[in-house]
Simulated scan of single mutants.
Amino acid sequence: MVAVEMLEVAGWTALEAADADEAMLLLERRSDIAVLFTDVDMPGSMDGFELATQVASRWPHIRLVLTSGRLRPSNDDVPDSGQFVAKPYRTSQLLEAFRNAG
């Protein structure tokens, strides 16, 4: 919820999904999503990496930004030239990741 507020203050429109399955449903129903921002550790049938991989395959125009408080992958580990931002992050770090994603 903090990330949603950060993004909305910066002028983005943010949609929230409770898990990866709900995120996929949102993506299937909408054509105006430009960036997927997901935690690596999330509930549902897949984790954030799997979600990002599926999104990159099905919607290559959507940029990918992943986060985690436990893992520290490199940007090279994120599918489709996506970005990783470690928790805790500042607004400036999150927005920079959005700008630099794919």
Rank of each mutant, 00 (worst) to 15 (best):
Pro88Gln: 13
Arg29Trp: 10
Leu27Trp: 03
Arg63Pro: 01
Val40Glu: 03
Arg29Lys: 15
Pro60Ala: 11
Pro73Met: 05
His61Trp: 09
Leu66Gly: 00
Ala97His: 01
Arg72Ala: 09
Pro60Cys: 12
Ala17Gly: 03
Glu50Gly: 05
Glu16Thr: 14
Ala18Glu: 15
Pro79Phe: 11
Val40Asn: 02
Ser45Asn: 07
Pro73Phe: 02
Val40Ala: 02
Ser74Lys: 08
Met1Pro: 03
Ile62Thr: 04
Gly11Met: 10
Gln83Glu: 14
Ala52Trp: 00
Arg70Met: 07
His61Thr: 11
Gly82Leu: 11
Pro60Ile: 15
Arg72Thr: 05
Gly11Leu: 10
Phe37Gly: 06
Tyr89Gln: 11
Val78Ser: 03
Asp21Trp: 01
Gly69Ala: 02
Glu28Arg: 14
Phe49Met: 07
Leu64Ala: 06
Leu95Glu: 05
Asn100Arg: 11
Leu64Glu: 05
Gly44Met: 12
Asp19Lys: 05
Met42Val: 12
Val55Ser: 04
Leu64Met: 07
Asp76Val: 02
Asn100Gln: 11
Arg29Val: 13
Ala14Pro: 03
Thr67Arg: 00
Leu71Trp: 02
Met1Thr: 15
Asp32Pro: 00
Leu27Pro: 03
Ser68Met: 02
Gly69His: 00
Gln83Arg: 15
Leu15Val: 09
Ala52Asn: 01
Arg72Ser: 06
Arg58His: 14
Arg70His: 09
Pro60Asp: 13
Leu51His: 01
Ala97Cys: 08
Pro79Ala: 12
Pro43Glu: 10
Met6Cys: 06
Val40Cys: 02
Val65Ile: 07
Glu96Leu: 14
Leu7Pro: 01
Thr13Val: 12
Leu36Tyr: 00
Asp41Pro: 04
Asp32Gly: 06
Ser31Asp: 15
Arg99Tyr: 08
Thr38Phe: 01
Ala52Leu: 04
Asp32Val: 10
Val40His: 02
Val40Ser: 04
Leu7Val: 12
Ala52Tyr: 00
Ser31Pro: 09
Ala20Leu: 06
Asp19Pro: 00
Ala17Tyr: 01
Thr91Asn: 09
Ala97Tyr: 04
Asp32Arg: 10
Arg99Asp: 11
His61Ala: 14
Asp47Lys: 08
Ser92Cys: 09
Ser31Ile: 13
Gly69Tyr: 00
Arg30Gln: 12
